[in-house]
Design a protein around this nucleic acid. Structure first.
Length: 593
DNA sequence: GCCGTTTTCGGCCCGACTGTTTTCAGTCG
């Protein structure tokens, strides 16, 4: 599950380390988060801290819409936001900051929050080292530890000091969070290696990986076996383990050689379901669930569901039973973020999410004809192996020279080849002749209408001019959407997870224009994009906008990224009717016409 | 600071592990 504070802003609707200025929802969420951190370090009652964090998450989920909300009463209607925070939000809207936050910053420098990243150092110790030693930054902390100034402090000692020093070094040696596909592959490798040693082992990935978050901080693995210490022993001796962080009866944590943390828990088979539920998280989801249990006179922990009065066990062997004991249907792991899934489960209204098995094709595929590696036939053969019935070929267009974009003649020749291949009828996969057009600085496209009319469909994406103002960018993409030949907007926010923030954009207006023009928005499934992200997808669904999943494959192997696209779609609560990839080629062609 | 199938006040999730401690605090997930 969630671990220490992340030091890169890779998750959520963010995506980079853009300085938080301005008065958008991201800045507000950041301010509330900072308020939570500083309050925690100050030693405020923990419920306040929790309240600020919940409010930050609620703001993230709503997006900029929240800043259009003008009254305390309407803000209070949002779960997690009450009187006091509503006023703070209005204050932020007015002044660009929150008075209470500014006061706290006077007391405890904002920098001190960075100390919370260090494993083994939480809010209490952060405050202690700041107040006693004046430590404000990681550098300060490292110096203090090296000079053995930490050990004499009350409650600390030589081991804590050494642990903190090691924590700092680890922090500097790791890239932080990794992409979902890297974590997925690593975890599969570990599971396979464990099964090789202990074939009877019951084992599953849990945590944020099972919830398929876009980035993963550490890998959580759950196992059940008759002899727990044998499992732990086998785990610690895996070749990829470089260091054992800790190892107890039921829990072990290690670092892999590439400095990724892997946590293993071993439970009894009778507690498998409860442990899997608990260990999958998220933390926020679990807290909500336990609150709910509490109100029913029940208690949930990793061993099962129990009656408080007599400790009688109601469930625990399987995960569905845990939820059933609380009167809930089971939310799929991807929904467990406390974003309304528990309330939906109470009402029996959980969405019927799409699954990989229902995907019939991929909209966004490059071939050797522009900057891809494999040719048309090779990509089609790979699609055939995945059981697809169609494949959208979307090579780069004329104006993207660096990606060997096709000129008009090249594009038309490719359309002809595609039609010839289709006419042969020797593959179950129909190729759809598309293109990934560039949206120019004023919304203009690469080809004239006559060329565009020859395509089966077209994606249009922003590939440059990222620095435009919010208004200009919104106008530019809206104009592209109003072109009748444009069916899909590619990677709509342009973010690259961990390296490039999304460009400035009024997503709500974009969704409006998309709904009005019937333009779909892409869910680009390439693991460093996942764009739109889960929050945005949910808003798109609410706006009635259709989603087209494309892997942006540049090699045949990349078609498998559809897995992460579908996972992100599920995290965005998307159902069958929301996603164009479930339709057949014939229907799509008539839709796009 | 939030919130209501027990409540408009008085609750607010739960357990494992470690280190510094003579019984517990801090951290983590």
């Amino acid at each position: 599950m969630a671990r220490k504070k992340d030091h890169i802003a890779a998750g959520g609707t963010g995506g980079g380390s853009r300085a938080v200025e301005g008065r958008d929802a991201r800045a507000l969420a950041h301010a509330l988060e900072l308020l939570a951190d500083l309050s925690e370090i100050k030693g405020e009652v923990r419920f306040k801290v929790i309240a600020y964090r919940r409010a930050a998450e609620a703001v993230r989920g709503m997006g900029d819409e929240i800043l259009e909300t003008d009254s305390v009463a309407r803000l209070k209607a949002i779960p997690g936001i009450g009187e006091a925070i509503a006023r703070k939000i209005l204050e932020f809207k007015e002044t660009g900051t929150i008075g209470k936050l500014e006061e706290l910053k006077e007391e405890i420098p904002e920098e001190v929050v960075s100390l919370l990243q260090v494993p083994g150092l939480g809010p209490r110790r952060a405050r202690l080292v700041f107040e006693e030693l004046g430590v404000r930054s990681l550098d300060d902390l490292q110096r203090a530890a090296e000079e053995h100034l930490l050990a004499p402090l009350p409650g600390l000692g030589p081991k804590v000091e050494a642990g903190i020093l090691e924590g700092i070094k680890h922090l500097r040696g790791t890239a932080g969070r990794i992409f979902i596909n890297q974590a997925y592959e690593q975890a599969s490798g570990i599971v396979d290696a464990m099964l090789e040693k202990l074939p009877e082992l019951r084992i599953s990935a849990a945590g944020s990986l099972r919830r398929m978050k876009e980035t993963i901080g550490d890998i959580d693995i759950l196992a059940a076996y008759g002899e727990p210490h044998e499992v732990t022993k086998a785990f610690r001796s895996l070749p990829l383990v470089s260091k054992v962080i800790m190892s107890g009866e039921t829990r072990s944590s290690v670092f892999t050689r590439d400095m990724l943390q892997v946590d293993l828990r071993v439970v009894d088979t009778s507690s498998w379901g409860a442990a899997l539920q608990y260990f999958t998280g998220s933390k926020e989801h679990n807290v909500r669930l336990r609150e709910l249990a509490r109100r029913q006179g029940l208690k949930v922990n990793e061993y099962g569901v129990f009656r408080v009065e007599d400790d009688g066990r109601m469930a625990g062997a399987d995960e569905e039973g845990v939820y059933a004991a609380l009167g809930l249907s089971m939310p799929p792991p991807e929904l467990r973020e406390d974003r309304g899934e528990i309330e939906a489960a109470m009402r029996g209204e959980l969405p019927s999410l799409i699954g990989l098995e229902r995907i019939r094709g991929d909209f966004h595929v490059h071939t050797r004809d522009s900057d891809g590696y494999h040719d048309l036939e090779e990509m089609r053969a790979a699609a055939e192996k995945l059981g697809y019935s169609w494949l959208g070929i979307s090579n780069h267009a004329a104006n993207l020279r660096v990606a060997r974009g096709l000129d008009a003649d090249g594009l038309l020749a490719l359309v002809e080849r595609i039609e010839e291949l289709n006419a042969k009828g020797d593959s179950p996969v129909t190729l759809l002749a598309g293109c990934e057009l560039n949206i120019g600085n004023d919304g203009e496209l690469d080809y004239d209408d006559e060329v565009l009319s020859r395509l089966h469909f077209a994606i249009a994406s922003v590939h440059g001019g990222f620095g435009q103002s919010r208004e200009a960018m919104t106008r530019r993409i809206s104009r592209a959407m109003r072109n009748p030949f444009v069916n899909i907007i590619g990677h709509p926010t342009g973010r690259l997870i961990g390296s490039r923030p999304p460009y400035e954009l009024d997503l709500d207006e974009l969704l409006e224009v998309a709904a009005e023009t019937g333009t779909a928005l892409e869910l680009n499934a390439f693991p460093d994009r996942l764009d739109l992200c889960d929050h945005h997808l949910r808003r798109a669904k609410e706006a009635g906008v259709k989603i087209a999943i494309g892997t942006d494959a540049h090699r045949a192997e990349h078609l498998r990224f559809m897995l992460y696209g579908v996972a992100t779609a599920r995290r965005g609560w998307l159902e069958g009717g929301d996603v164009l990839n479930l339709l057949d080629a014939e229907f799509l062609r008539s839709l796009f016409r």
